[in-house]
Amino acid sequence: MDFKKIPLRVYFILLVALIFGISSGILFFRIINNHLFVKAYAEGEYKTEKEEGLLKLNVPESYLPYYNLGNVAYENGDYASAVGYYNEALSLFPYGEKECDIRINLALAMCYGIDWQNMDSKEEIDTALVVLYKARDVLLVNNWATEDGEGHRDDDAQQLKEDIDAMIEKLKNQQGDQSKDNQDQQDNKQDNSGQQDNSQSEDDKSQSEKEKRLQKELEGEKKDALDERSKNQDDLKKWGSYSDGQGGDKKDGEDAGSGYGGGGGRYKPW
């Protein structure tokens, strides 16, 4: 066979066909792997091996495997990893509603990552407030949610932003209560120091009454603080109830079984 007689355009067509065949094979591989992942996820099996393999073949929609792996980490309670995956997904320029889905899941993962049961110091409350402010800022990008609720692009993003605002307000109030507790304890120490010169019987009686009063006040304030923490967790859990399609308004083109929210994030994997 004389290769010199084959026109150059034939080689070009063969090359294009080869590239097209390889690209089609990669795309087919991605579709099948992703379908198997989504199917396993729906059945409560959070297998990441095949989805992690897509990170090496991350075109098109290169953000998709990061979003899906973020949902798995979220389901497993590994909120720090979920935040990392969602941030990586956002860095790969998702578009339209998919960007909003990732931002909502990211904000939820940040909120769930807060240790709500341990807010016994000003430092812990301050740390939680920093995280909450960052979570709300995630939702404000591109007007998915807005400060005043006017002109927002997504109702779920706006509602989550308002829930986070409520959590921030509660923590600020708790922060004030914590400062008051510290002041009361300091006043108690000063009172104890000033009473050292009194008779032992009078000192014991006064000290006992003050301790009882302060103890009662502290117990009441701690109960209020625990109630507030539980309320914050309940505010987040209502997003989780959407993961089985039990909440939220169905959007155009969605199946009845696809839902918003916690648990698996706002939406199930793509």
Rank of each mutant, 00 (worst) to 15 (best):
N198P: 06
F93H: 15
A107E: 03
F37R: 04
N68A: 08
E45P: 10
P60I: 03
D203F: 15
I164P: 02
A166F: 00
N33Q: 14
N87K: 15
V72T: 14
D181K: 15
L132A: 09
C111Q: 13
N34I: 12
N87H: 09
E52L: 09
Q246C: 00
G96R: 12
H152N: 10
D101H: 06
L36S: 10
V16A: 15
K212L: 00
E99F: 01
Q233A: 00
G53T: 09
F20W: 08
D234P: 00
D187M: 10
K170G: 10
A42Q: 09
N68D: 10
E88I: 03
D191T: 09
D234R: 12
L36N: 14
P94D: 05
A166D: 03
K238C: 01
R153H: 12
F37V: 00
V138A: 14
N142E: 13
N143H: 12
E49H: 08
L139H: 04
I102M: 04
G96P: 05
Y86C: 07
N105Q: 11
G21Y: 06
S179M: 15
W239P: 02
D154Q: 03
I19H: 04
H152G: 01
G53P: 02
G70V: 01
I22F: 09
N142H: 14
L106Y: 04
M1H: 07
A128N: 04
A109Q: 05
K161W: 10
R229Y: 14
C100E: 14
L57K: 05
Y260N: 01
Q207T: 04
I19N: 04
L64A: 06
F37Q: 04
E254Q: 11
Y79I: 00
E221W: 10
A17D: 03
L55C: 08
L226A: 08
Q233Y: 07
E211S: 11
S91A: 06
Q183L: 15
S201N: 11
Y95E: 11
P94F: 07
